[in-house]
Amino acid sequence: AAGRGHDHAMLRVEDMLPAPSSSSSSCDMSREHKHGATSSRTRMPIVHRHGPCSPLADAHDGKLPSHEEILAADQNRAKSIQRRVSTTTTVSRGKPKRNRPSLPASSGSALGTGNYVVTIGLGTPAGRYTVVFDTGSDTTWVQCEPCVVVCYKQQEKLFDPARSSTYANISCAAPACSDLYIKGCSGGHCLYGVQYGDGSYSIGFFAMDTLTLSSYDAIKGFRFGCGERNEGLYGEAAGLLGLGRGKTSLPVQAYDKYGGVFAHCFPARSSGTGYLDFGPGSLPAVSAKLTTPMLVDNGPTFYYVGLTGIRVGGKLLSIPQSVFTTSGTIVDSGTVITRLPPAAYSSLRSAFASAMAERGYKKAPALSLLDTCYDFTGMSEVAIPTVSLLFQGGASLDVHASGIIYAASVSQACLGFAGNKEDDD
């Protein structure tokens, strides 16, 4: 993005292409994003899973997912989140709770393929593991030796509990075992299960060991899943880092250390580096006008917020409040494309398309769930209408130009939003 006016943002066409198309470019890792910590903050680099900075980038053998595959997987994730939210809100609205031996079939969400990854250290001495970064689920897990049943291929060595002097299984009787959504018991050892909406799953021992977040910072006795049976669409990541609001998540486990505060930033380009910070030091740049309440009564795991309106080109769209309050809104690091209630999306699409038509941009075919696309062939820079998401309390997310357009190619650059099917999805 070269610049931003009140009603439009300028976007360089060459900057539009996300991974995997730009994977041949070099990694742009600035010094400030390398592992580090201050007295009140621990910082880890975040990179795009398929971008040139990813430790997994060499593992693909040139077989990167297509945009259609990325968007189809994203739709799986969105659907599974909606199924889970529907289940939990139905329960909270007064359905009698049964004494259930089994837990909800979907304890997490489909992973998708457009996720970002971070590298963690685990064990003593610490091994390095690149894991999927997920604010939409709680339990952290990695594939483990001896991989009793099945493991998918991963880029790094499997975590081997026998080589860690600080590893211990958690017993079935331990309170921590009760924190799991899906649990079992074998020989007195607590078993965990996570199953995602696309059929991917991981099962194994619920254990504890030292988690290293930076060269200076470690969490002793961190509880995680040591996966002995793992199948699914994990790419070649070693596992997953759960950052939700549930008891097993990293921010909740490390609450005493970091005060339940963390922050992340995703870079504009797939060749860039973002960060994941833990601790109160993440906060100084956030003024009250940039914050919105976390609506914790809506359900577990997810970070619910109150979306109240949308501006396109600086103008507030006429969307009744009930359109947003009927369904609610979550912020999810693992979903690629923002999903809006049908009426809100329809209004956004109409205003966006109208502004693009005024500028004379040529339309292009739809790309999977993205139905408002343009052909920018022959252009070096385009002017697109600004899009702002407005939240309870007055916070505004003025979407960066790199987040307004999702481009498969120069000739197929689309509005990076999609509509839900039903008003109450």
Partner: peptide, 30 residues
């Protein structure tokens, strides 16, 4: 449920404070 996805969060510092129950959006954070 509506979902704010990672494409729209690019370059924003997204801050989660579980204790204070707030989510913050800082522009131009990376």
């Amino acid at each position: 449920v509506g979902i704010v996805g990672n494409t729209q969060l690019k370059t924003f510092g997204v801050v989660y404070d579980i204790g204070k129950k707030v989510v913050g959006f800082c522009p131009g954070a990376c």
